[in-house]
Design a protein around this nucleic acid. Structure first.
Length: 275
DNA sequence: ATGGTAGTCGCACTA
């Protein structure tokens, strides 16, 4: 059997509900992690998702900023997690299951980290590093107790690889691609042998972007993008990812210009081939 | 080197 996962930083779920519904109709993922929903939990527009077949909904929202939500065709059970040192709404952890399978789906919106890549000078950058450190601690604990398959998705706000940015040299000092945050993200990845699906399925030489700034007129033509959005899986899902092949992993680039007011991020989908 | 845009709690903040 196949499971289709998706992640998308939507930058206001209420403003772009029609775009989300269109994406769900066209791609039919089983589980979708949304970030930057920008609404309080009780204001999340549940009805349109339920009507589209996504009746399992878990939301972590706050006023104005941030926020994450996971919507699913398969049953979701909320897991009690805490990653954000400041208590922001930035993650939803769930156990996804049906009669044949179960896996954990962790949906993250890692802090962007401000402009200065120094935790002593910039508390937002410190917050970003601390958030990732909390992720590492959590998965250390979790792995000892419960070796169920894990999926980590979301806007990680880090482009770890040289070809995850349009110009490696020029972005080395730009938060999202600085050595210190890349190294901390890689520590988390290595500590648990998480597989970064985009890089597992594409060549290192391929430029891969999931985000293009709003500050610029023709984002896809100038193509100054970064790969800030990720789908990671635990090593027990390695074969499920690799056997689905390159066509099983899609970065939906056209969504950056498919509608008058798009998100600055595009969705990513990943098929798990569990047969 | 700077500034550019977008969204919300809209004249300030986050990204």
């Amino acid at each position: 059997m196949q499971i289709k996962l998706a992640t998308w930083n939507i930058n206001s779920v209420r403003l772009r509900i029609d775009q989300v519904l269109r994406f769900l109709k066209e791609e039919s993922p089983d589980v979708l992690g949304l970030q930057e929903i920008k609404c309080e939990t009780h204001l999340f527009p549940k009805e349109p998702f339920i009507n589209a077949g996504y009746k399992y909904i878990e939301v972590d929202g706050m006023k104005g900023y941030h926020g994450a939500a996971t919507v699913s065709k398969l049953s979701l059970k909320r897991l009690d997690t805490k990653f954000c040192p400041l208590g922001h709404s930035r993650h939803v952890s769930t156990l996804v299951s049906n009669k044949n399978l179960s896996f954990e789906f962790h949906n993250f919106y890692i802090p962007a980290g401000g402009d200065i890549a120094d935790p002593k000078e910039n508390e937002k950058f410190k917050h970003k590093l601390d958030f990732i450190e909390n992720m590492r601690t959590y998965f250390s604990m979790r792995y000892k107790k419960m070796p169920s398959p894990q999926v980590l998705v979301g806007d990680f706000n880090i482009a770890p690889h040289e070809n995850d940015v349009w110009n490696h040299k020029q972005l080395l000092k730009v938060v999202s691609h600085t050595p210190i945050e890349v190294s901390i993200l890689k520590d988390l990845q290595k500590a648990h042998n998480f597989i970064d699906c985009s890089r597992a399925l594409y060549n290192d030489e391929d430029k891969l972007f999931s985000w293009w700034s709003y500050r610029g007129r023709n984002p896809l033509e100038s193509n100054r993008g970064r790969r800030l959005d990720h789908i990671w899986v635990s090593s027990d899902l390695k074969n499920a990812v690799e056997s689905s092949g390159k066509q099983g992993h899609i970065i939906h680039t056209p969504c950056r210009i498919w509608a008058p007011k798009p998100s600055d991020h595009v969705p990513i989908t990943q098929i798990l081939n569990l047969s």
